[in-house]
Simulated scan of single mutants.
Amino acid sequence: MANRFDSSDLEEAVRIMRNGGIILYPTDTIWGIGCDATNSEAVKKIYTLKQRSDSKAMLVLTDHDCKLPGLMREVPELAYDIIDMAIKPVTIIYPNARNIAPELIASDGSVGIRITKEEFSKALCNKMRVPIVSTSANISGHPSPHFFHEIEEEIKAQVDYIVKYRQDDLTPSLPSQIIKLDVNGEVKVIRE
């Protein structure tokens, strides 16, 4: 376990994802399974690994709100206020998603995006220059692991890379708040 991630850990995770692989990595909430969110084949690998229906959309992470306009036709102005005022991680479901794998876009055209503030996942998004998938590191229907040691061996065995950073970290984390924004500015809180 590393207390501060080293660049070789980050570089290897980026290399794997750029080559269509999937990784296990720490996020600002719980450990996640990730890949390049613009790569359909990699996204399909995650659905297969999680044994999850592809009708259940997965969220994506990015490192800065300036990248939002590239991921949807129009960013609701309120989104920036919500992001700025958030005390804990917040996932916003936006309408009219674009420039990501179609498998990540819900049937209504929306996508869930979180701006990560966690050190490793933020650096990962920055280095990838595209959003990355972030879905809980569990088989669909099984409990979400809060810590690395709770992740099922089946998951660990099927990813292409496991990030070393924070594997021994037992700091409790909170799930993200989930808010859905509509094009007309309507706000719906899905999870507080």
Rank of each mutant, 00 (worst) to 15 (best):
P102E: 06
P95C: 06
E119W: 08
V90T: 11
N138S: 07
L71M: 13
V90H: 09
D160Y: 00
Y25N: 05
A123C: 08
P143L: 04
E153W: 00
K164M: 10
Y25K: 01
N138Y: 01
I115G: 00
A37Y: 03
G34M: 06
I93Y: 11
S121P: 08
N138E: 11
G112F: 08
G70H: 12
E154L: 04
S55C: 04
A123R: 03
P145R: 03
V133W: 09
A86D: 10
K156Q: 10
Y161E: 11
Q158H: 12
P131V: 01
Y165V: 00
G32S: 04
P131I: 04
S53F: 07
I132A: 03
I100E: 02
E150G: 03
T116L: 15
A37N: 01
D160H: 05
I93E: 13
T91L: 12
D54T: 06
A123W: 14
G32P: 14
E154S: 15
N96D: 14
I115R: 00
I162T: 13
R52T: 11
A42Y: 03
I132L: 12
S121G: 01
T29S: 12
D81A: 13
N99L: 03
N99D: 14
M72H: 02
R98T: 12
S53N: 12
S144R: 01
I46G: 11
A123I: 09
A79P: 00
I33E: 06
N39Q: 03
A42G: 07
C125D: 04
I46C: 05
S53R: 10
D108P: 01
V43N: 10
C125W: 09
Y25H: 09
Y161S: 09
K127M: 13
E152M: 00
T29L: 11
D65Y: 15
I83W: 10
A101I: 00
Y80L: 11
I162F: 04
S136H: 04
L61D: 04
G109H: 02
K44N: 09
L124N: 00
R98P: 15
